[in-house]
Design a binder for these strands. Sequence first.
DNA 1: GTTCTTGCAAAATATTTGCAAGACG
DNA 2: CGTCTTGCAAATATTTTGCAAGAAC
Lengths: 138, 138
Amino acid sequence: MTHTDFENILIGKGIKPTANRILVLKELMRNSHPVNLADLEITLAPMDKGSIFRVLQLFSEKEIIHVIEDGSRSLKYELCTAEHHHTATDQHPHFFCEKCGDLYCLDSISLPDLKLPEAFTVKSINFMIKGICPKCGN
Amino acid sequence: MTHTDFENILIGKGIKPTANRILVLKELMRNSHPVNLADLEITLAPMDKGSIFRVLQLFSEKEIIHVIEDGSRSLKYELCTAEHHHTATDQHPHFFCEKCGDLYCLDSISLPDLKLPEAFTVKSINFMIKGICPKCGN
DNA sequence: GTTCTTGCAAAATATTTGCAAGACG
DNA sequence: CGTCTTGCAAATATTTTGCAAGAAC
């Protein structure tokens, strides 16, 4: 992917492609796993934590990332899949290991098609399964 | 329910029924909604926040309550249904309104029956749907 | 008396914001 | 210029723990 590709992704979602935003986007793409703010603070050093936070906030509003609450104390961020880029529909369950803290993306399991009363507007879905992962089990 | 009933619920789950624990249990039963620590701190005053926290921690370990992460900044606690008292199976989705902050229990919608690889041990499930509720919508 | 529980106070962890300087156009 | 973005520092919001006193057995 060229620099212009990254810019275009952002522009396509109505986000002005500043240097910081491109760096955050690249870093999120580099990670196959959801990452938290502290992770990004390290890998994106010396970028400022507050700035990273605001970029993530913007990305979340513009729906190019999911915000995942796995019950660890920190929020995790994950890019939406390239094709959909839509928070409410493009989602999969996650498995959080209570022992090692790893977060697994259960990509192969699709979310059920929920029927909520019409008056509810769905913006995002968080389906978190917790327990012990294969590495830690037995 | 008599005082003894509350005691027996706790004893039945291997929890020594101290005064504080009975009070917390009663308060959780009184609430049809999930509540957070700050809520409990008020309704259970003058009980100490740290003590409430430790009771909730114990209840969670013994699986008589669910811990719900709705993306508000605070954890919410909800009693498992009286019949099951088991975290992994006795669960329902929740809807969190991003505008008013209310948390709805979608009791009528059952959780899908997920098939995880056997090596994963499921301890609890958090299914959170977020968006705008009927009160705030339109 | 030994162990468990509680209250108080403070630590720890994350998230979020205020503000002034700088970049952009 | 005027607006948007960034870095730095600090405020917030919760959760979590240390410790000594008290209760339970």
